[in-house]
Amino acid sequence: MFANDRSGREKSIFEWIGRNLSPESCTSEEFIYNEMESQSGYSLPVIYQPFDASDRWHWSDRGMLYDFLYSTNGEGKKLLDFGPGDGWPSLIVAPFAMEVIGIDASETRIKVCTENAKRLGINNASFVSYKPGTELPFEDNTFDGIMAASSIEQTPDPRKTLEELYRILKPGGRIRIYYEALSDYKGGFEKDIWIVKLSESACKMVLYDRDWENEYALQYGLTVDIPEEELKERLSGGKEEIRFDQVSVAFLEEIKNRISRAQVMKTIHPSGKTWVSWLKAIGFKEVLPSYSGGMAASELFDLYSDDNRPSDLKSVDEAIKKVVKIVTGLEAPIDFDPMITAVK
């Protein structure tokens, strides 16, 4: 009975939004990325924060650097970063490459990446924009390698995007794909909420309706003219955790006159099996689902004690590189939805 009640409540929330707010359909950059000063919340090591060898996540970030670098055979090569966010991984990979070009549909992201590159003194990374759903502004066979971190699935048609990336990749070139499959949300996390600050007086409440079986997600974005912390307080009743089940039609009615914009976006989230199928059908001659360098670096961090763990960036890199080079070449079970390397 409880499950049926919950399902009915969730359905009524999305129906209420559709009926009362008439959300406009939009693409991902219109939905959120143009509105974010920092996609990462200024949390990225090296790009925004000094590297901290005592922080497990900082090790993971270095592991991802070498994951993308080695998986694309990118040392000294020309690389594309598709969907660079705040300049990740392009700006941390750039010191090892000949050239890195980042491309994004969001003008805000391009501006942020360009400013970050200038601030960091990185001269071999540049960033360009394109209109989603159109051809990428590059000639055939342009890049030695392509890095795509949770970005292809943010485009209107991920398969067509993958075909474009194949077109601009050189024969023998490699693409490394990190993606958000929906398998992680099975068992109670299909419906979710995220509140992001837009200004001192406004925030955006994003409600997720994920269908992992059919590999897509609907996101409803409500721009609310209420400060972020105040909205969280009103939603949770003072509790620290913000959860989807705190949202109700009654709550939406209460804040309706403060909702200045409503949007809806559908994104396709292929599973690992679907990615492999697409890559092979498009023409990639080798497709390898493999383990993540970030995961390997995190596990390596755990093997050290606080007393014997490397304490500077150079020493950490030396420890991480060898492990990442091995694990990124090891085939991982596709049911785990692992990262994927494909060779044209």
Rank of each mutant, 00 (worst) to 15 (best):
F2A: 15
F2H: 14
A3R: 15
G8D: 15
G18A: 10
N20A: 06
S28W: 08
E30L: 00
E35H: 15
E37L: 10
G41L: 12
L44K: 07
R56W: 01
S60H: 02
G63E: 01
Y66K: 07
G74K: 09
G74M: 05
G74V: 07
K78H: 11
K78L: 06
L80S: 02
D81P: 05
D81V: 02
G83M: 03
G85M: 02
D86T: 02
W88D: 09
F96C: 09
E99V: 08
G102T: 10
I110Y: 04
I110E: 00
C113N: 05
T114F: 10
T114E: 08
Y130H: 14
E135Q: 05
F138L: 06
F138E: 06
G145W: 15
A148E: 13
A148P: 13
S151P: 12
T155V: 14
Y166R: 14
P171N: 09
Y179L: 07
V196F: 14
L207D: 01
Y208I: 01
D209S: 07
W212Q: 09
E213A: 13
N214L: 14
E215N: 15
A217P: 06
L222H: 05
T223H: 05
D225I: 03
P227F: 05
P227V: 03
E228R: 12
E229M: 08
K232G: 01
R234W: 06
S236E: 00
A250D: 09
F251Y: 05
E254I: 04
K256R: 14
N257Q: 12
R258Y: 11
I259Y: 09
I259P: 12
S260H: 07
H269G: 02
S271W: 06
T274M: 11
W275D: 01
W275I: 02
L279W: 04
K280W: 00
K280T: 08
I282V: 07
G283D: 02
F284G: 06
K285D: 08
E286R: 13
L288T: 04
G293W: 01
G293Y: 02
E299D: 13
L300Q: 05
F301N: 04
F301T: 01
S305G: 15
D312P: 04
K314G: 08
V316E: 10
D317M: 10
A319P: 12
K321G: 07
T328G: 02
G329N: 13
A332T: 03
P333Y: 07
I334R: 03
P338K: 04
A342N: 03
